[in-house]
């Protein structure tokens, strides 16, 4: 979701990102200098990582300096994603995969997709019949694709 953000919040986010880049670049360069890297022909295996870390460090400095410059103005809009949705989507993804492997493709797909659509649909717009049809069709399609057309390896699941 994009929404207007105050200039200060925008600047904090940018400075945070710049600090992250500088920290990553700096730590990486220290690791290249003191870590366990194998020297070899053409600069060894640390050459390109060292260049990439240097670029990250420089980019972080440029972003930070750009934001601290007088007269800088933020973009009008920024991306905003609720943390709960990010965590929920990743947990749902992990649960879906585990369920497919242990319960079965058809059942897991139908139940979890129905649940996800139900959760994402505003209560006033929920149409149980439509959600059930979409979930059942998805379950059937997934079962056909991933057991018949491009079979995936699953240890004997409980259901189908």
């Amino acid at each position: 979701m994009k929404h207007p953000l105050s200039a200060r919040a925008w600047m904090h986010r940018d400075l945070g990102f710049a600090a992250l880049l500088v920290a990553l670049g700096g730590a990486g360069l220290l690791d290249v200098r003191f870590g366990d890297w194998r020297p070899g022909p053409g600069g060894g295996n640390a050459l390109v990582p060292a260049v990439a870390y240097s670029v990250l460090l420089a980019a972080g400095c440029v972003i930070a300096l750009g934001r601290l410059r007088p007269g800088w103005s933020p973009d009008a809009q920024r991306l905003h994603v609720p943390v709960g949705i990010v965590a929920g989507a990743l947990l749902w993804g992990g649960a879906f995969f585990l369920a497919v492997r242990h319960v079965g493709i058809g059942v897991s797909t139908t139940v979890l997709i129905a649940g996800a659509i139900w959760a994402l649909t505003p209560p006033v717009d929920r149409r149980p019949g439509l959600i059930a049809v979409i979930a059942l069709c998805s379950g059937l399609a997934f079962w056909v694709v991933f057991t018949q057309l491009a079979p995936i390896l699953v240890a004997s699941p409980l259901l189908f």
Binding site: G93, F96, F97, L112, I117, L120, I131, F142, I152
Partner: peptide, 20 residues
């Protein structure tokens, strides 16, 4: 078409497609 009807199906497809 409302994206919320499609998104869970697409995420499921991404996961199983990658595994396949």
């Amino acid at each position: 078409i409302q994206p919320h009807y499609v998104l869970p199906v697409v995420l499921g497809l991404a996961i199983l497609g990658t595994y396949a």
